[in-house]
Write a protein that binds this DNA or RNA. Sequence first.
RNA 1: GCGCUCGUAGCUCAGUGGAUAGAGUACUUGGCUUCGAACCAAGGUGUCGCAAGUUCGAAUCUUGCCGGGCGCACCA
Length: 578
Amino acid sequence: MTLNQLEKLIAKIVADTFGPELDAGRLNVSLTADSKHGDYATNAAMVYAKDLGRSPREAAEELAGAIKAASTDIESVEVAGPGFINITLSNRAVAKSAQAATTRKPEQYAGKTVVAEYSDPNPFKVLHVGHLYTSVVGDAIANLIETAGGTVHRVNFGGDVGLHVAKTMWAILAELGAGGAEALDDIPEAERSDWMAKAYVAGTRAYEEASEEGHDPQPKLDILQLNRIIYEVWSLEPESVDTYKGLPVADIEAIYRLCRKWSYGYFDAFYARIGTKFEKYYPESEVAPLGLATVRKQQKLGVYKDSAGAVVFEGEPYGLHTRVFITSQGLPTYEAKDTGLLMTKWRDYHFDRSVVITGNDIIEYMKVVLKSVEQFEPELVARTVHLTHGNVKLAGNEKMSSRKGNFLRAVDVLELAGAANKAANGHDDERVVLGAVKYSFLKQRIGADLVFIPEESVSLDGNSGPYLQYAHARARSILAKAGKIPDAKLDDLDKQERVLALKISEYVDVVERSVDELMPHYIATYLYELAQIFNRFYEGSRVIGDVREAERLRLVTLYADVLSAGLSILGIEAPDRL
RNA sequence: GCGCUCGUAGCUCAGUGGAUAGAGUACUUGGCUUCGAACCAAGGUGUCGCAAGUUCGAAUCUUGCCGGGCGCACCA
């Protein structure tokens, strides 16, 4: 009997005892923090006592009797305090539900087609720690949905057109000079992403300087022209441009296409390293035409409006704000591209659910885009959910900035963790490095900003990924030493075995909750508590050579399987040996 | 100004209206001749931002205020 099953049972007993008109949603069954109050507690009597005009203790006594009689799984029921009903399961029942932990499956998404969009880095820019965070979170959420039976399509959206590309291209062209595309061959593969990142910084700086009063505006004008040229590559620019500073547009296109290819290669390598795999990239250039066409079409139907030459959606009637979808230059903004993306995902997958995972800085923006699309594709929007997380900050709540120099690239984080790991155990183990970093991101509830403390994210001690991996390897080590695991049925339990078994039995309930809320941290917290309990068990209960060896081997197997399954949802490997 | 979001131990964070609000970290000490010491055990910390309200009961719900972060027209 698990918590969820017990809750249903008690709801039924309450209805039978006090009448079916009581709102079952108000009662609550929870695990008790310590064994002196039994395994579970319910507030049912206190919640309904007032409605019934009875004292809570008296109602509790009546319910307690009915609960005790309802199932042979229940060892004892006691009334305590103001009217809590404390329930203790029989050892046999605890053993039974522990054994079900690896076979019961959550199924909230059974048979559902789900599109999960996350990570969303922009080509021509560097991958920073924020991308690492959002990728790890997105991957865990996608895993959660898969665990609950969904068929998940992982997709990735990125800006391969737009002003940031033009800024980078401006600096690239300035550096290449007369060398043209051939000069790109001189840049070693390993240095390409850094080289492009530097170009982006240089281009951005030039653009900002040129925008200031009293500065030469030419770089800005050049960048804007390049922007149009790049849009033209994808036939998104209404007027054609022939040359840029004497260079044929065809040459610029060749350089652009090569650098764009480098970016996607750089992304692929990064995702392979962190163990996530996308089914599809949706570059903005690919979805922008549909976005543009859709906005133009719906503009005629009155959804989008003209405003100072631009095409906008007025959000004010819905409590939102107005945003520009097509600039007065005729170019699609991010809003139009996102509209195209929404339509393209819908066309490609006809999903039951679409999950978009991004930082919380675009919450309001996304509301406006979704509200506009809702006007002509309500079903699409009804099936879409925007999940957001906070931003990665440095200690002291400091915001990262490339200019201040307190900027961490994604690879810097992995390298820091790698160095810490090597210093601690003398060799490289990427599984542990990733375990440390991913767990440090996932143990925190999604939503608030994440303060990134390098030393903690790479830590091997305490509430950390490596602690869990170690607690898993320890268990596997016992099992390996034992050799063949006898097919013992777990029935009776001693005190320490019972504590471990009870915790194991919670696993599926925790996963279900995690899936309901799409919050991976519940699993992280649970696994840590589970591993803690196991480590205590390990100290106090010898397995091999004990009279209860067969039962304990069975229990340790269940534990290791649950831990490994849970870590796998978090995208963390659980090696048998470290 | 409006909107979103957050505020819990020195720091980083858990906490489903319920019992004495918990972890990690840091600090001190003890435990390896037995399945892996990346472990375990012991030691103490709180105006749960402030105030009012709802409730038998509030860190949790409501309202107001204070503080931080983010967003609010042609960037992404």
